[in-house]
């Protein structure tokens, strides 16, 4: 990792939510300094790279994700946004050839420490997927699944109701909790998946293009829902839809892919990470500007 290969410029890479408190942009990237970890920070990525076999999907990402905010990842296809998102709850473990270098600090603890159990990670950091993936079980059983695997005994009716209410789905399904979740519409299924994730009371919710399979009305509902719950949860969302990122997120990270000339593979890099309104109105990097104004990607 020679300095000249770094395409990011230092100030953009380490931009923080409260610029006044974190202006230490020139400190060396590879040296964590626990004393200046922002108390509102949930995640700190340090020099994170992900490989699939020998293929490097994304490299040298440094960023800090803050509590109770919506952080959006945008960028063209194949720039490793989803790959990166799946590092936050170790879903990449499910891919045999995936390998992670660097650190994902969650409240200062490296999630990739050998002592960390991914099962515990995922109970705190939930996930909503691109395609709605309810279990082929009843609506009730879908929501109750998480609490059950977490060892909650007894009647889960209250948890089910609370989760469905928070996901703004209760009124639509309260009379058919025993029906199969597969009978719901796509948008309802996705809200069910969000309710399912909320049922285990996670701190963080990762959303991987949650609206890409939905129509605009369903998308609007999911966005309203995100707005609603962000006071309680930290949300990270990957989206292909720039308007969506602009509408819902507080902070926005723009990724792009650099083509490796020798192997003809594409590796994702973080270009810029800042407050969303700045990203869309006055980005620091020309590549960001080109992308958000539609001149590229």
């Amino acid at each position: 990792m020679a300095p000249e290969t770094r395409t990011q410029s230092q100030p953009e890479k380490r931009s923080e939510p409260t610029a006044a408190t974190r202006v230490d942009a020139n400190r060396p990237v590879a040296e964590p300094r626990p004393e200046d970890i922002d108390p509102t920070a949930v995640f700190d990525l340090e020099d994170l790279s992900v490989y699939y076999g020998s293929f490097r999907a994304i490299r040298n990402v440094d960023m800090t994700v803050c509590q109770k905010q919506i952080t959006a990842f945008i960028g063209p296809s194949g720039c490793g946004k989803t790959t990166l998102l799946r590092c936050f709850n170790r879903m990449n473990d499910l891919v045999d050839i995936a390998r992670v270098e660097g650190k994902v600090l969650y409240h200062g603890v490296n999630l990739y420490d050998s002592a960390v159990n991914p099962v515990e990670v995922r109970r705190r950091i939930g996930m909503v997927f691109q395609k709605p993936n309810p279990f082929p079980k009843s609506i009730y059983d879908n929501i109750a699944f998480g609490p059950k695997v977490a060892g909650v005994k007894g009647d889960l009716g209250e948890v089910v109701e609370r989760s469905l209410r928070r996901a703004a789905l209760w009124d639509e399904v309260k009379d058919r909790l025993k029906d199969s979740a597969m009978g719901l519409s796509g948008g309802q299924q996705q809200r069910l998946c969000i309710a399912r994730a909320l049922a285990v009371d996670p701190e963080v919710i990762l959303m991987d293009e949650p609206c890409s399979a939905l129509d605009p009305i369903a998308t609007g509902r999911i966005e309203d829902l995100m707005e609603e719950i962000k006071s309680e949860y930290t949300i990270l969302i990957v989206t292909h839809n720039m308007q969506q990122a602009a509408r819902v997120s507080d902070r926005c990270a723009f990724f792009t892919a650099e083509v490796n000339e020798t192997s003809d593979t594409r590796t994702g890099i973080l270009v810029e990470f800042d407050r969303t309104e700045k990203m869309f109105s006055n980005p620091s990097d020309e590549r960001t500007e080109n992308y958000v104004t539609g001149r590229f990607g």
């Binding site: 995922r122 997927f129 285990v200």
Partner: peptide
């Protein structure tokens, strides 16, 4: 059984045995 169902289960913090017994086998 679609991979998405397994991911849903693992994403909820289910262990391998739970995923096998409660999600994959019923499906």
């Amino acid at each position: 059984v679609p991979k998405a169902l397994r991911e849903a289960s693992y994403g909820m913090g289910a262990r391998k045995v739970t995923t096998s017994v409660r999600v994959v086998i019923p499906a």
